[in-house]
Design a protein around this nucleic acid. Structure first.
Length: 520
RNA sequence: GGCGGAGUAGCCAAGUGGUAAGGCAGGGCUCUGCAAAAGCCUUAUGCGUCGGUUCAAUUCCGACCUCCGCCUCCA
């Protein structure tokens, strides 16, 4: 089955065929954060979407080069640097650090490269010089440089590839009216902004005098520098379609970097925005959440990632706290199924039969902060799935869904049908250890795309323990007492012990094979 | 005003020219000392409204209503 994407450039779903003649490598660029503040949940929807796309392309066997820029110089940043009486590097460094903490808490794989605008000034200036030399950019008397859409068009290029623009019908917003800069035409945009007093120390030398880059030019300079003048995929939030991405095309193609017949970018993918509690996020409505706000409410990164990944990326999504609660329950169902599979699979792997209870497993659901890192960490070497190939059914159905423009909702449907089927089989003892191992391997394969980090505390007492946690002796002792009381049919005492354990954060599940302890 | 997207159960969310995936929440049952977990059953004669095309539409067409995005630095 071929992978298909909705390409904003063609406004249609197209089969994905990489530019690489060998058909092996894929260049992917996603517009990253502007580090002027903590990123909010809407920002992260886009980054989780990009992470999903990258993981799925890798799942399909391509080798991806994932680049995400960090915009660390821009009007708002400069204003805040000034207001806070600090330096650009100090200010942006702080928010960049926070951004990557959040990014990894959501289980996003780090891009292979994360270039910074301020580290690419030389390349940016060179690109602007090229545009000036080709006559599609001009320096204004104040030392700013603008891109001329009229010249670009008269050179036979198309401005308005990603959306229909009718310049005659354009109703300029208020933002245009304050004429800060000396543009020739209202639609022209700044490539280089001449230094003004308010910029403070934030400026670089250029052939046109001191100044700083415009908003769009950095992405053109960095993406073409790292991925080449033509690359496969460019992603971002839907609001970036215009003007940001349209201008990127204009700059990159206007500079004539591409071989003839090649576009700057072959596939443009845009993620829809999200609403929070049915409304547009806004601070005054009290529905404006940064990732850290949500973590502080007790939700963790995997729950938030799961929720962000329940809807198709091109649909606007309603993010709610109720949904987050539902995400927690849904993940618990999945964790439960996987833990039982490990119990079944684990009994053969070491050649040892399960000796005696207690079996222990569970998830630390109240964990606030996921550490970063890859989703497979901690469960590779000892994973019983190493002994078997993945059970094919789930993987195939999952891939069929994802091939359709990353239809994640449908893919989750397949996953949860598989969970039910697996639970049903296990409930009737119809899963052999090798089958369980194959099912786990199938999950691992699917999860290489979903990126749902494993629940921390997995089965411990069966010989497949991954050693991440031990039962405190106090807990073990209480459990023993409770089991003894049950055996003696002193249920009152047994229930008291159970309540006591619950207070300490552990629950007991009695199974035919003995008691299981779960961390709440 | 222009361009684009969307309206599916209490909530979230797939999907299809032939009669509605999945998750959460709710109800019932089985299992259990009781629980928990799991399983089974159940929850939209209905897919914004009104027309049209068709043997058949939620799915195609038209109008309307509502919501959302973009229209110069917002993911």
């Amino acid at each position: 089955m071929p992978l298909k994407f909705f390409n904003t450039l063609s406004r249609s779903v197209q089969e994905f065929v990489p530019l690489d003649p060998a058909g092996k490598s894929v260049g992917l660029y996603c517009c990253g954060p502007t580090v002027h503040d903590f990123a909010h949940i809407g920002n992260f929807r886009t980054f989780v979407f990009a992470d999903l796309a990258r993981r799925y392309i890798e799942f399909k066997g391509w080798s991806v080069r994932h680049v995400m820029n960090v915009t660390d110089v821009e009007d708002k940043i400069i204003k805040r640097v000034r207001d806070n009486k600090t330096t650009l590097a100090e200010y942006t460094g702080r928010f960049e650090k926070a951004f990557f903490e959040d990014f990894q808490a959501l289980g996003c794989l780090l891009p292979h490269q994360t270039p910074h605008a301020t580290a690419f000034i030389e390349q940016i200036v060179a690109l602007i010089e090229k545009l000036v030399a080709r006559g599609v950019a001009y320096a204004a008397p104040d030392g700013s440089v603008y891109f001329s859409i009229a010249q670009y068009r008269s050179a036979g290029c198309c401005y308005g590839q990603l959306l229909n623009l009718n310049f005659e019908e354009l109703r300029p917003g208020e933002r245009v009216s304050n004429d800060e800069y000396a543009k020739e035409s209202i639609a022209d945009f700044a490539l280089w902004k001449a230094r003004v007093r308010e910029d403070g120390d934030v400026f670089w030398p250029s052939p046109w005098g001191q100044g700083r880059p415009g908003w769009h030019i950095e992405c053109s300079a960095m993406s073409t520098q790292i991925l080449g003048p033509s690359f496969d995929i460019h992603m971002g939030g839907e609001d970036l379609i215009f003007p940001h991405h349209e201008d990127e095309i204009a700059q990159s193609e206007g500079a004539g970097l591409q071989e003839s017949g090649h576009r700057f970018v072959k596939y443009w993918l845009h993620g829809a925005h999200l609403l929070v509690e049915g409304k547009k996020m806004s601070k005054s409505l009290g529905n404006f959440f940064t990732l850290r706000d949500l973590l502080a409410k007790g939700y963790n990164g995997r729950e938030i990632r799961y929720l962000l990944l329940t809807a198709h990326y091109r649909e606007s999504f309603n993010f709610t706290l109720e949904g987050l609660q539902g995400a927690r329950t849904a993940l618990a169902r999945l964790d439960e199924c996987l833990a039982r599979l490990r119990e079944v699979a684990g009994t053969t792997v070491g050649g040892d039969t399960l000796k005696s209870p207690p079996m222990i497993h569970g998830a630390r659901g109240s964990e606030n902060r996921q550490t970063g890192g890859l989703p497979h960490e901690g469960m590779t070497s000892q994973c019983p799935c190493a002994v078997a190939g993945p059970e094919p059914g789930l993987v195939e159905r999952f891939a069929e869904s994802m091939d359709e423009d990353l239809n994640i909702s449908k893919a989750w449907g397949e996953v949860f049908e598989w969970v039910r089927e697996t639970n049903r089989l296990m409930a009737s003892n119809a899963v052999t250890p090798p089958q369980a191992a194959a099912r786990l391997a199938a999950w691992e394969r699917v999860n290489s795309v979903l990126g749902i980090q494993p629940a921390r505390l997995t089965t411990l007492a069966t010989g497949t323990a991954d050693g991440t946690a031990a039962i405190p002796s106090e807990i073990a002792s209480l459990l023993d007492q409770r089991q003894a009381a049950r055996k003696a049919k002193d249920f009152k005492q047994a229930d008291a012990m159970r309540d006591e354990l619950k207070k300490l954060g552990w629950t007991i599940e009695d199974t035919p094979k003995g008691a299981r302890l779960k961390r709440i």
